[in-house]
């Protein structure tokens, strides 16, 4: 691990200032991934800015039209918070992280900014994993790579486990920096980008910026669920996942939002599948049709065709699980 300066700001403004003072910085939240990235020298910042001592980032508060969650709220705190008890799809995610150590340290913002687990990226070939002009995942082992949105050079899958659930809820994120006092809210969906070059990164975050808060609309009478397809019982990453947020009235779907995870370089919004559910009852049959529609445009690579079926199953099970939890 290369040496670095260590900053521990106590306000959001101080954090932005510390990030702006030097060229290369890394943001430390729960540390469950950054310490590994530093150890592997995949990131070599001159300064690490630790956000843990900023009280406003640990708060969950009721705001006029919804709930505002600080980016440093841990998975464990999220699952326990009374204001969040109606956002079931978030609980499903916490429940799937099968390690009390990660539940206790890992943070919401850390998850949203988690760098891809693509093994080429983690072996220093960059986000696009190119060597001599050739895509390594394309030519090599792509069993955990993208099956959607993979026509460009990016073949990795987005690593965030909360993003599908949050996007299905219509979440916004507050990005602060790089200028002092600069803050912007944007839909989480637009936070992620599919890079065309290694320098581009997989989010809109520029140096000196960070996510300070996540906003969720009032849960109202909406129901939600996440289904993650896992290979192992213990701590592992999903091979595919889906989150659904639904509004059911007398058994008929009035509103639906389906988002898939770990299938594309960005969380994949299944718009068409969501749309065709409107006005339908939710049952095995309609859930299956929506699931088929969600993966109909999939373009699997040489070794990951199995993921199409996993994604299909994830969508179907997330829908049925959400319907089960709908208030009668």
């Amino acid at each position: 691990m290369k040496s670095f300066e260590y900053a521990r700001p106590e306000t959001e403004a101080e954090a932005v200032a510390f990030l702006g003072e030097v060229e290369s910085t890394a943001i430390l939240a729960g540390g469950t991934d950054l310490t590994s990235l530093l150890r592997a020298e995949l990131v070599t910042p001159a300064r690490v800015v630790d956000l843990k001592r900023i009280p406003s980032l640990h708060e969950v508060t009721k705001v006029d039209d919804g709930i505002q969650i600080g980016s440093l709220v841990t998975l464990e705190d999220l699952a326990k918070h009374s204001l969040l008890s109606n956002y079931r799809s978030l609980f499903d995610v916490v429940d799937g992280v099968r390690a009390i150590q990660v539940q206790g340290s890992g943070t919401l913002g850390g998850d949203l900014c988690h760098l891809p687990n693509c093994w080429y990226f983690r072996s220093r070939y960059g986000l696009l994993a190119m060597e001599n002009g050739e895509s390594l995942p394309e030519a090599g082992d792509n069993r955990y790579h993208a099956i959607l949105g993979n026509s460009g050079p990016a073949k990795f899958v987005n690593a965030s486990r909360f993003a599908p659930a949050l996007i299905a809820w219509g979440a916004h994120v507050r990005v602060i920096g790089p200028a002092p006092e600069q803050a912007e809210w944007l839909p989480l969906e637009y936070f992620y980008v599919t890079p065309r070059s290694n320098a581009q990164g997989n989010t809109i975050l520029k140096p000196g910026q960070l996510i300070s808060h996540v906003w969720l609309p009032d849960a109202g009478r909406l129901a939600s669920a996440t289904y993650e397809v896992m290979q192992m019982e213990g701590l592992d990453w999903p091979m595919a996942s889906a989150a659904a947020t639904l509004k059911l009235e007398s058994g008929i779907i009035r509103q639906a939002s389906i988002v898939m995870g770990h299938v594309a370089p960005v969380p994949w919004v299944a718009q068409e599948a969501s749309r065709l559910l409107i006005g339908q009852p939710l049952n095995e049959e309609t859930a299956s049709v929506a699931a088929d529609t969600a993966v109909t445009r999939a373009t699997p690579m040489s070794m990951n065709e199995y993921k199409v079926q996993l994604a299909r199953t994830a969508v179907k099970r997330a829908l049925l699980k959400a319907a089960d939890q709908s208030p009668v």
Binding site: Y6, G30, G31, T32, T35, S36, V48, I100, Q101, V102, G104, S105
Partner: peptide, 9 residues
């Protein structure tokens, strides 16, 4: 609380 000590400085 249980923590991986390799993830903290």
């Amino acid at each position: 609380k249980p923590v991986y000590s390799c993830t903290r400085f």
